[in-house]
Design a protein around this nucleic acid. Sequence first.
DNA 1: TCCATATAGTCAATGAGGTTGTCGATCGTG
DNA 2: CACGATCGACAACCTCATTGACTATATGGA
Lengths: 162, 162
Amino acid sequence: MSRDPREDARPGYELPLRLLLAFRTVIDELHERIAREGHPDLRPMHGFVFQAIGAQGTTAVELGKRLGVSKQAAGKTVEQLERLGYVERGSDPADARRKVVRLTGRGVDCLVRSARIFEELREEWVAQLGGEERLRELEDALRTLAPGDPFRLDTPRWFGGP
Amino acid sequence: MSRDPREDARPGYELPLRLLLAFRTVIDELHERIAREGHPDLRPMHGFVFQAIGAQGTTAVELGKRLGVSKQAAGKTVEQLERLGYVERGSDPADARRKVVRLTGRGVDCLVRSARIFEELREEWVAQLGGEERLRELEDALRTLAPGDPFRLDTPRWFGGP
DNA sequence: TCCATATAGTCAATGAGGTTGTCGATCGTG
DNA sequence: CACGATCGACAACCTCATTGACTATATGGA
């Protein structure tokens, strides 16, 4: 028989692996649901790109800075999302060099659905953990361990590495 | 003035972003330390590969299955790690088709150091959270949200996507 | 025993996604 | 007005994955 789990020594790698597994589980669940709602070709990365574009649109250079990639890479990503119908490019009357990238109706629909699904998922986490208070404690603990702004949009580049 | 934080509505996307940020913070810290101890060319992905190879060694096909990539991709990764001196390939006397991949002394050294650094980091998390009990609660909450085996080794492929 | 089939590893071609370098067009400031 | 900075685009290249084809070896059933 094993001892009381509260007495077990827990390996140091458990927490980071659990963090990643929980993140993967959440994101997979999000994309499963959003695929069922009419957006089947979205990748985990695209959510970050949509957030980086924002409601008012942006340019390739600015998008590259937010995502932590070169302007050329950002331009290619925009091109791909344009082919998928999620963004469109227009010219800026105030500056003929700039080409503003904006979300299309389909892109906005995707953002709206993502936000709603995240709220639904949050309610499910509250139920699983046994109360809103538990989820807040979890969030507080994570804030303590990693206090920065959670909106780091340079994540896609981070894992693969150069 | 903002209200008491415990009364604020928290958006549903906060938890997943915090999970990812905490994971990144931990892994970045691990690699910063292990780089200082003589392993500067390791990428976040390589830790997963070492774990997938294991102490007894494995083959390219088996490694590919564990990592969730093709055998060709696994073979190329092995080739790269062989160039860096972390693994070596030998033949299997019982099966002339198989070429067994094993960790070198340098590879084992890397695993040992990783394990020690993870233990050091865990002590620091305990101190930051204000007690072993808090960290156990955090781990328990994460187990509740994502109950599976945390040793999912197919992560490198997960984010980038096909 | 011998042959069919399955498996291990390698080579080649391709694609996605990133990089740097370069260039012309345009803006802003001195 | 001219010069430097900025934006977007094109090209060449790198890394890391993919699939397909091929050889060598193992294995199991007629």
